[in-house]
Design a protein around this nucleic acid. Structure first.
Length: 934
RNA sequence: GCCGAAGUGGCGGAAUUGGUAGACGCGCUGGAUUCAAAAUCCAGUUCUCGCAAGGGAGUGGGGGUUCGAUUCCCCCCUUCGGUACCA
């Protein structure tokens, strides 16, 4: 019988759906195992060969776990809200819901072609009201809770109100921006607005006016991680700071727990480090300095209080609230000029040239320890958002302070002697303290402890832990996202929408243009904005990370209408055992998901502290990028995400010209007329696109390189074509065969013939002259050895996610069985099961041809028998001084002495021993022999 | 700059606890089959000296530990990823 993957795939795909093969119950006597893929954003470009890499790996692992007797949850869904669909709608008028739906259909088809064992009955889409009802509900819970630092968990706001009414806030330790202390009487005397403002300062989801990254071009606010080098990550548009009321999530309340619990999860070092850096914990001291002739103090934060005797000046961030008050008349002009300069500096300027700039306020602080007057400066190198927005500058032991002091001629007093540590840099926290009174002679570490204690005794400051992590701006001025479950009353007080009124459904419109003054398109829909009881709705929508922060929980019980998932379902599935996805989500998504999970844990809604026990980042399959692209009329680069929304033909027809630059061959080759011709031959689908030639292209430069596969880079290889030619099983195995799952590698179709050959050869073991031809004869020792060695190897390699070596093992076994002309059912039957996770279609077909009725995917993974792997004899390498000179075969149970004696007598060894003395002979049984001569 | 990961034939990669470096596959070379090609099959393929037998070198570079190092330690170089005035 000929191997026809196309027919086999169609047949089994239907059969698997009809028999609900991959549907999984929330009850089982089998142990549970939850394998999750990061769900995709369904872009218009469809899948390329890079996408499925992680899905294939997780599918193999899921199938393996099923064969091993686990009840495996392996779901899939779509991260369906997001900016690209909205941008596409603005350009084409096609509603995001429509384009998203089309894209999802396409994705599902492509995913199914690859034979993934997803339980589609559990599919979730973040844009589905039945789903985002619960995204909104979790938001209302964040709104109704505060973080209690004493209990170290989230508690209801109502508890806080009770406490305020009874005791004021003196006893409360909470994650808050509230600094003033008030009594119960104070509280009761406050206006409703004052009370509500204080409560807002405590909520885990809170509204605050703040500076946000405003992108005029996109008409929206961007998260910090969506801004790169002062321009938007999508599109590369300029971003400026703008004051707007924003919803924020108090993720900083969870900083410490997110840091601590990293120790308990099985993630890569690289990823954990990234998260640790992002959280950016630092220990130090926060303290006040008096200001000369002023009734004010400067509060600063430092990690090096031990160097306080070297603090010869102070620096405030330009935006610091004291700047106005401190500036003397004589310095007024300097300061105003400097503030104007800072205003004029865009983010890009700040990033690209870090100049040493600043201005003197004219005021002096008193260094409490030296009693010297130290000048107070402002400078842009001090950031308003970190610590207290003010520093004590120690130019002797801080590189930035040193540069600054040198430029402006400020005093430098050395306070740390590092002569005992040659090679130590300025930043290293080592050395002996000098010129510092009672700290003199102490090591840095001891001095930090001593001075911090002294500061606390003196009542001028305290030990303080700071984090780089910022609270998360959660408002987006867009249409295509979850509406906030928030309404405002006539006093503009925010109220959470009650559960029975959820979801707040995203209203219909066909006008997706940004609203006026940075408002979302929803603000135009007046009927929707005003509720029945006269309240006003929040018109911003949530960012894309909202829906992806908890989707793994919804899969556990996706159709529940009473809660986000039933307690029984959550209790059964617990958490994700294996999470597979790209490293590009290392920070944002994984931080939010961990934060939400911990919050739900505090509420008693989930049983585990962490959502994802083990995480694997699959590498990217890269393409060769041959050119740059930009929007010709605006002269701006086009965001790849946005281009990905478009069909190839649409792109070619676009009034926006896509221009190509490349150094394929040489820098000019595609820029010349000839080069463009060459390119069009290579990619005929772009024959209608307009190209620029070298003369027009002086403003952009890009070289060819290996990089991300993306439609915008015109280097996409579509898996459908590969599947068409070779079959899904070959495609799956080839992607695994390319290399370790975590490594990135360029796609090269050439090698696929090796895998294709392998599958055909494996298939051919079962047939003779086109007919099934299996033997019931007893297997030989050699055949059993091949089988059992493969069972052992494949089982162990799957466990350690080494799928590329599994494929090698299959090839080896097949080659050997072929040499032995093995057609014995007792060997081939377990081989089919072994191969089933990798090649689900082919093995299912062979399994049925062997007369089985149940699916091979319900079989049991075979066990290996060590007895079959035993060798009678082992070939030993024999080395002289570590260099292999001969090999010799000895019985497995030969004694060390016997091996040593025999090895020394070998003719091929003897000649190396002539005239030398044997000093030592090392025999490692079953491994090797090394003879040391001299 | 800082943090992290990595560097092995012409190419993708293997070597799981320090024990025969280069498994498996691609490519290439030669052969079989064919009118021919594709496909398929067989053999060879780290470099280098040599007709061969047999030497020499070899896992980014330099040192070290060890009977023995791709693997452990120190220094340096390169590439990729993250991050960037965080006091």
């Amino acid at each position: 019988m000929e191997y026809t993957p196309g027919n086999i795939e169609v047949k089994w795909r239907k059969q698997w759906v009809d028999s609900k093969l991959y549907q999984v119950d929330n009850e089982s006597d089998r142990p549970k195992y939850y394998v999750l893929d990061m769900f995709p954003y369904p872009s218009g470009a469809g899948l390329h060969v890079g996408h499925p890499l992680g899905y294939i790996a997780s599918d193999i692992y899921s199938r393996y776990k099923r064969l091993k007797g686990f009840n495996v949850l392996h779901p899939m869904g779509f991260d369906a809200f997001g900016l690209p669909a909205e941008q596409y709608a603005l350009d084409t008028g096609i509603h995001p819901a429509v384009s998203t739906d089309n894209n999802i259909t396409r994705y599902k088809e492509q995913l199914n072609n690859l034979g993934f064992s997803f339980d589609w009955s559990r599919e979730v889409k973040t844009c589905d009201p039945d789903y985002y009802k619960w995204t909104q509900w979790i938001f209302t819970q964040l709104f109704e809770h505060y973080y209690d630092l004493a209990a170290d968990k989230a508690l209801p706001i109502s508890d806080l109100v009770t406490e305020f009414e009874q005791n004021g806030n003196a006893e409360i330790q909470a994650a808050t921006t509230q600094t003033e202390i008030f009594s119960a009487a104070d509280w009761k005397g406050m206006s409703e607005k004052e009370q509500r403002d204080i409560l807002m300062n405590h909520r885990l989801a809170y509204r605050e006016i703040g500076y946000v990254n405003w992108c005029e071009e996109l008409g929206t606010v961007l998260a910090n991680d969506q801004v790169k080098d002062g321009v938007s990550e999508r599109g590369g548009h300029p971003v400026v700071q703008k004051a707007m009321p924003q919803w924020n999530l108090r993720i900083t309340a969870y900083a410490e727990r997110m840091l601590d619990d990293l120790n308990d999860i099985d993630w890569s070092n690289a990823l954990k480090t990234m998260q640790r850096n992002w959280i950016g914990r630092s220990e130090g001291a926060q303290l006040f300095f008096d200001i000369e002739d002023r009734d004010a103090q400067i509060e600063i934060y430092t990690t090096r209080p031990d160097t306080i005797f070297g603090a010869t000046y102070m620096v405030l961030a330009p935006e610091h609230e004291l700047v106005e008050q401190l500036t003397t008349e004589g310095q007024r002009k300097d300061i105003d000029d400097y503030l104007a300069y800072v205003q004029s500096r865009s983010e890009i300027d700040r990033m690209s040239d870090k100049q040493v700039t600043g201005a003197f306020t004219g005021a002096y602080a008193i260094n409490t320890f030296t009693q010297k007057r130290v000048p107070i400066w402002i400078a842009e190198y001090v950031l308003i958002g970190y610590g207290t927005g003010a520093i004590m500058a120690v130019p002797s032991d801080d590189e930035r302070d040193q540069r600054f002091a040198t430029k402006f001629g400020l005093e430098i007093i050395p306070v740390v002697d590092k002569s005992d540590y040659p090679g130590a840099t300025l930043d290293d926290k080592i050395g002996k303290i000098i010129n510092s009174d009672f700290l003199n002679g102490m090591e840095v570490k001891a001095a930090i402890k001593a001075i911090t204690e002294r500061i606390e005794e003196m009542g001028i400051g305290r030990k303080q832990i700071n984090y780089k992590l910022r609270d998360a701006g959660f408002s987006r001025q867009r249409y295509w996202g979850e509406p906030f479950p928030i309404v405002y009353d006539e006093n503009d007080f925010a109220h959470a929408v009650e559960l029975e009124d959820l979801p707040v459904v995203l209203p219909e419109t066909d006008d997706f243009k940004p609203g006026k003054g940075g408002k979302s398109p929803l603000s135009r829909l007046e009927d929707w904005v005003t509720t029945e009881n006269g309240y006003t709705r929040e018109t911003d929508t949530m960012p894309a990370v909202a829906g992806s922060s908890w989707y793994y929980l919804r899969y556990m019980n996706p159709h529940n209408t009473e809660s986000f998932a039933s307690p029984q379902a959550i209790n059964y599935w617990q958490d994700v055992d294996l999470y597979v996805g790209g490293a590009e989500h290392a920070v944002a998504h994984l931080m939010y998901a961990r934060f939400w999970h911990k919050f739900l844990y505090d509420l008693g809604k989930v049983p585990t502290k962490e959502p994802f026990k083990k995480l694997i980042n699959q590498g990217m399959i890269q393409g060769v990028i041959e050119f740059a692209y930009y929007h010709k009329s605006s002269g701006k680069f086009i965001s790849e995400d946005i281009i990905d929304q478009y069909d190839v033909n649409e792109l070619a027809q676009m009034p926006v010209h896509i221009d190509f630059v490349t150094d394929y061959g040489s820098e000019e080759s595609y820029l010349s007329e000839e080069g463009i011709e060459q390119f069009k031959n290579w990619r005929p689908e772009y024959k209608n696109a307009e190209f620029v030639t070298a003369a027009d292209s002086d403003r952009f430069l890009t070289k060819s390189e290996v990089g991300k596969m993306s439609k915008s880079k015109f280097n996409v290889i579509n898996p459908d074509e590969v599947v068409e030619t070779y079959g899904a099983d070959v495609f799956r195995m080839y992607e695994m065969f390319l290399g370790p799952i975590e490594a990135s590698k360029p796609w090269d179709i050439q090698g696929i013939t090796g895998v294709s050959k392998f599958i055909r050869r494996f298939w051919d073991l079962f047939f003779k002259n086109g007919n099934l031809h299996l033997s019931d004869a007893k297997p030989t020792k050699a055949e059993l050895k091949i089988l059992h060695a493969t069972i052992k190897k494949v089982g162990e390699d799957i466990e350690r996610f080494s799928f590329n070596t599994c494929v090698s093992a299959f090839m080896e076994a097949t080659n050997e069985l072929r040499k032995l002309k093995c057609n014995k059912a007792s060997i081939l039957r377990p081989m089919v099961i072994l191969l089933a996770p990798f090649a689900p279609y082919t093995t299912e077909e062979l399994w049925q041809l062997m007369g089985e009725n149940e699916s091979v995917h319900k079989a049991t993974f075979p066990a290996y028998n060590e007895a079959y792997l035993k060798e009678d004899e082992i070939e030993y390498p024999i080395s002289i001084n570590g260099k292999k000179r001969a090999t010799a075969v000895f019985a497995t149970d030969a004694s060390k002495d016997a091996i040593e004696k025999a090895a020394l007598e070998l003719e091929s060894i003897q000649k190396w021993l002539e005239g030398k003395t044997v000093r030592k002979v090392i025999v490692v049984p079953r491994r090797m022999v090394n003879i040391v001569v001299g």
